[in-house]
Design a protein around this nucleic acid. Sequence first.
DNA 1: ATTAATGCAAATGCTTTGCATCTCT
DNA 2: AGAGATGCAAAGCATTTGCATTAAT
Lengths: 138, 138
Amino acid sequence: MSDLLERLRGRGWRMTAQRRVVAEVLNGDHVHLTADEVLARATDRLPEISRATVYNTLGELVSLGEVLEVATDGRAKRYDPNAHRPHQHLICSDCGAIRDVHPTGDPLSALPAAERFGFTVSAVEMTYRGRCPECARA
Amino acid sequence: MSDLLERLRGRGWRMTAQRRVVAEVLNGDHVHLTADEVLARATDRLPEISRATVYNTLGELVSLGEVLEVATDGRAKRYDPNAHRPHQHLICSDCGAIRDVHPTGDPLSALPAAERFGFTVSAVEMTYRGRCPECARA
DNA sequence: ATTAATGCAAATGCTTTGCATCTCT
DNA sequence: AGAGATGCAAAGCATTTGCATTAAT
């Protein structure tokens, strides 16, 4: 909830007009924009911003841990600024729409109705991410 | 475990040399090939098979529910023939290597050491897939 | 002054498509 | 025969890259 821009300033992140606009566009709850959507919204406020800068900035924010990258399988990645509160994702396999959800109880069992947002849930999938022994060695 | 080819025959799947080779290449446990790897192995056995056919066939197998598509974020998708036994995935963020895992207890907590295969696990991520109300209406 | 961010345009990687030809059933 | 699968090559989309220019500290 606390402002993304403020958090970034607090971390001594080098500020430019472009970076500010990207952070502003991304700020908020339930925001899951694609890079293209970020570019479109950013261009409204700052017409000279380039696609490369949007990608650069998004990549930065992800490595800073301030934004989460959500892969939607086939479709363009979405960027989620809600990195400070743990949550999971509910993704529409038709259109790629995303909702944040907070499952209760055993997460592999059905998602509570109150957390389903009208979706017909057909699959739950869990992924552990890390480094394999070979890559850790390098 | 039971043979992928047999299951496909049993379902009345139209058989061709190309489809047979793809199914053979994919058969087995702990198999997580990319489309390109499938093409390479298939080409060894049937030099005239085309990339388009490999993609077509993989797509078919996925919609039949006989093969799982595993998105590895940025990298090429991998195809997992182990669709008949529930399991989760452990993915290396450096090289994209995949292992099947069977977490016990609360899946969002740490993966048991015996299931870690030497990986350093840095994140667990859960995704619910389904159809949103708007798409369901269409 | 230094160091890093920006913009452009071209390149990349994976996957899909259109369409004519060939093959299973 | 007829529905459907195949191969080819080109197109598509999301994302990345190289490099000269520009701006922040």
